[in-house]
Simulated assay, not measured.
Amino acid sequence: MNTQEMTDRIANGEGFIAALDQSGGSTPKALKAYGVADDAWSGDEEMFAEIHKMRCRIVTSPSFGGGKVIGAILFEKTMEGCTDDGSPIPELLSRRGIVPFLKVDNGMHDTENGAQLMKDMPNLEARCKRAKELGVFGTKMRSVIHEADGAGIKANVAQQMDYGLQILDYGLMPILEPEVSLKSESRPQAEALLLTHMLDELNRVPEGKRVMLKLTLPSEPNLYKQLVDHPKVLKVVALSGGYSREEACRELAKNDGMIASFSRALLEVLQADMDDGEFDTALGKAIDEIQAASMQPA
Results as ranks from 00 to 15, higher is better:
E91R: 13
G138W: 03
I290K: 03
E80P: 00
V136K: 00
V136Q: 00
M258C: 06
D38L: 12
R57V: 07
V157P: 06
N156E: 11
R204Q: 12
I89D: 04
C56Q: 13
L217V: 12
K53E: 13
L234K: 11
P100K: 01
F48T: 12
L213I: 09
K53Y: 04
L239T: 13
A18N: 08
L267Q: 12
N156W: 02
L193H: 04
L93D: 03
K119M: 12
V36L: 07
I167M: 02
M173K: 05
E246F: 03
P100R: 00
G135L: 03
S63F: 06
T196L: 11
E147F: 03
E246I: 10
A148N: 00
M212R: 03
V205P: 09
D280Q: 06
R57C: 00
I58T: 05
G241S: 14
A49C: 02
D273I: 01
S143E: 07
K103T: 08
G150K: 14
G171V: 06
R9C: 11
L234D: 11
G138E: 06
R250H: 13
A265R: 07
M121Y: 08
I73P: 09
I153T: 04
G35Y: 06
E278T: 14
R250I: 00
S261N: 05
A131K: 09
S219E: 15
I10K: 04
A265V: 10
E251A: 12
L202Q: 10
E289T: 08
A192W: 00
Q271R: 15
S42Y: 07
T281M: 11
M173S: 07
A192E: 15
C128A: 04
E80V: 03
E179W: 02
D21F: 11
S42M: 05
V104C: 11
G43W: 07
A72G: 04
Y170L: 09
A190D: 00
L266F: 09
E14M: 10
V144D: 12
E133Y: 02
E201G: 10
L134S: 00
G97F: 08
S63D: 07
G15L: 09
E191G: 06
Q116M: 15
A253V: 05
A49D: 15
Q271N: 11
G208A: 05
N123C: 06
P88I: 06
S26F: 04
W41I: 05
P221N: 02
E45G: 03
A265F: 09
S23P: 00
D38G: 15
I287A: 08
E177M: 11
G107H: 10
G65S: 14
L168N: 07
M161P: 10
P221C: 05
D288N: 13
A260S: 12
F279S: 01
E133H: 02
D162N: 14
T78Y: 05
D273K: 13
L176A: 08
S94K: 14
Y224I: 04
D275F: 01
G277K: 11
V144L: 14
Y243Q: 10
S261D: 09
T7F: 13
G150C: 02
G71A: 10
D44C: 00
K29S: 14
K209G: 02
Y224P: 00
